[in-house]
């Protein structure tokens, strides 16, 4: 490995670390930096309210941003390679549409949602479970199809069709629901990193880690798929099994994040392109960890931007990621011109 690349890795890791600390430091309540560092390393503080804020709110939120960044970027990279499409992202299989259907049925369909909401954490868990079931069902359909259908474009189109169908059902549910329920649903679709509790992290982080391990295990398959299915097959790759494996990993990554945080757009599309530009390679052995590090940083940064108003409530994260992600995509299109070729 040459020194320039080594420097890039060290730089990315340092940036990620700094952003992680900064994300914990910044918030509506001003906490002195010394105090933040002290709590981070000892877990204690003379000011109990600072301790509570850091331990119960800011660290879970920063961890959520970190892992959401990892998960969405890596799953976006996987989808871009599998579909040989630079505009593919983690939601191309209809995962977010499935999740929103699950949540819509729970929030809008079951009118006793307000009752559920009074249970607080339980209500929160119900949304997660509904989203997971929704995206899981869509995933199951896509996986079943991917084992039978040969043509990857057919799978892509079916994914988009399932997505559109579920979106229509969601619209119908919205039409018949009351204003307050509608608002609860819309807030979910805006995405939130702050709503994930400490206990939920015990589910979210292991799910993402398993998905990431699968992504690292799929590096060789993804590299082979880059040159097209004919070549991949002629080199001994089991196309259907590999697709199944990668889809499973993507669903675990994107599905879990969407269930806990709502749909978060553009990170999954933009970050793999940034990684390709930084490392100037198409090799997934570098792109998977590269996208992970950059994705984590970008989402931590987006989270900090969302808190700029300095009020108690932060801006919807989905809007921030779109505003951060879209210029990147446009910049790449203009700079590279040949956007149609992956990378």
């Amino acid at each position: 490995m040459n020194y320039k690349i080594l420097f890039v890795w060290v730089f990315l890791i340092v940036v990620l670390f700094v952003l992680f600390i900064l994300d914990i430091f910044l918030g509506s309540v001003k906490i002195p930096f010394n105090e933040v560092i002290h709590i981070l390393f000892t877990g204690n503080s003379d000011f109990t309210e600072f301790q509570t804020i850091i331990i119960h709110f800011r660290i879970p939120k920063a961890l959520t941003a970190l892992f959401a960044g990892f998960a969405l970027s890596v799953s976006g990279l996987q989808m871009q390679t599998i579909f040989k499409n630079p505009l593919a992202g983690p939601y191309v299989l209809g995962i977010s549409a499935g999740a929103s259907l699950g949540v819509a049925i729970l929030v809008l369909g079951i009118s006793s949602f307000t009752v559920i909401n009074q249970f607080g954490i339980i209500g929160n868990w119900l949304i997660v479970i509904a989203a997971w079931i929704g995206s899981g069902l869509i995933l199951f359909l896509i996986l079943a199809i991917s084992m039978r259908v040969k043509d990857i474009m057919t799978i892509l189109i079916l994914g988009i069709m399932f997505g559109s169908a579920t979106t229509s059902i969601v619209s119908i549910l919205q039409y018949f629901s009351s204003e307050s329920l509608l608002k609860a649903f819309i807030v979910w679709t805006m995405g939130s990193l702050g709503g994930v509790s400490q206990t939920q992290l015990y589910v979210l982080i292991p799910s993402v880690i398993i998905g990431l391990i699968m992504a690292f295990l799929s590096v060789k398959m993804l590299n082979a798929m880059l040159v097209g299915e004919n070549y991949a097959k002629s080199m001994g790759l089991n196309i259907r099994l590999s697709r199944f494996f990668v889809f499973f990993s993507t669903s675990l990554l994107a599905g879990s994040i969407t269930a806990f945080c709502g749909p978060i757009g553009f990170i999954g599309i933009a970050v793999p392109h940034i990684a390709r530009m930084v490392f100037k390679t198409a090799n997934h052995k570098i792109l998977v960890p590269g996208s992970m590090l950059i994705g984590g940083s970008v989402l931590l940064l987006s989270d900090m931007i969302s808190q700029l108003p300095g009020k108690e409530s932060s801006l919807p994260i989905n809007s921030i990621t779109a505003l951060v992600g879209i210029p990147v995509v446009i910049w790449i299109i203009i700079r590279k011109q040949k956007f149609s070729n992956l990378g």
Partner: peptide, 24 residues
């Protein structure tokens, strides 16, 4: 095969696919 950022070396190295381990 026309993929941006794919080096000649990496493309030829893909040929080792059936000879390398799970991680390539």
């Amino acid at each position: 095969v026309n993929i941006q950022n794919l080096s000649v070396f990496d493309l030829v190295a893909l040929g080792r696919f059936p000879h390398t381990n799970w991680f390539g």
